[in-house]
Structure formats: structure tokens, C-alpha cells
Amino acid sequence: MSLGMCLDCRRHARASELACPFCGGTVQPPAVRRVAPGTALTRAVLLGATLSAAGCDFTSAQPVYGAPIPADSGASDSGADGDVSAQPVYGAPLVDAGADAAMMEETGPMADYGAPPPPPDAGGDAR
């Protein structure tokens, strides 16, 4: 089930809805936020510790690790093997034919007896 967001009541609604079932408002279709193939799947990636483009009206998502990383910087999140080409959740979809369906479903493991991931500058390389 693909969920967009109602522009009026801000609830998530099925992208197939003609109008928000909760208030009758307009449902904004979702962007597909994908992780690029070859990216090491880490909690930081799943939990949004990646790019979040400016200018999106419908989400308060901010880059978790500070300022957005320029697209051509070559920087990657902690633990990733390659660049993460995430797009803002409610922006334009990526053209990414190779995305893993399993990763699409994923919305991040956050075991309640666990801890938030460390900041990207913690600990350096593995011993």
C-alpha cells in the first residue's frame, strides 16, 4: 500500500484515494524514497540520516546529521559502501529500476531497548 499525505489534515492516506478519507482534503502522492543499489543498508540510512532536499512543503524532515550533503561531494553516510541517493519523501521520485522491494518496505529498525545511532564523527575506523 502506497501512502501519500493529505494537504489539509496531514494524515497519511492511500495514494489511490480521490480525496482524504478523514477530512475530504487533497492527497499528495508520495515520492518513492529509495536507497540506491549497492548502498550498505544501515540504520542511519533507513532512519533518514541522509539527504533531505530543501523546499519541500509537507515534511519537517531535516538531514539528521546536519547540513545537506552536496550531491557531488562524494560523501556517504556512516558505514555505507556507496552514495545514498535519497530524495525528499514528498518530492520527485528517483528513477531507480534496481531498487530492492524489501528495502522499499523498510522503515527502520528501532528496537526499544536499543539506542540511537552514533553521530557520523564518532569512533572513526574500526580497530
Binding site: 540510512v45 533507513l46 532512519l47 529498525p109
Partner: peptide, 24 residues
């Protein structure tokens, strides 16, 4: 109405289902 605030930046834009035995 608060899910997008809490999890709008997550990979799915919102909470999905329990990840026990899948990612955790």
C-alpha cells in the same frame, strides 16, 4: 496528523511494521 513530523524523514516517510526478525 503527527506521523510526518515524527518520521517524515524515514525511508518510508512513516512507520511501517515491526522489524523483529527482519532487520533487528
Amino acid at each position: 496528523p503527527y506521523e510526518h513530523t515524527l518520521r517524515g524523514g524515514w525511508a518510508g516517510g512513516h512507520r511501517g511494521s515491526c522489524s523483529a526478525g527482519r532487520r533487528t
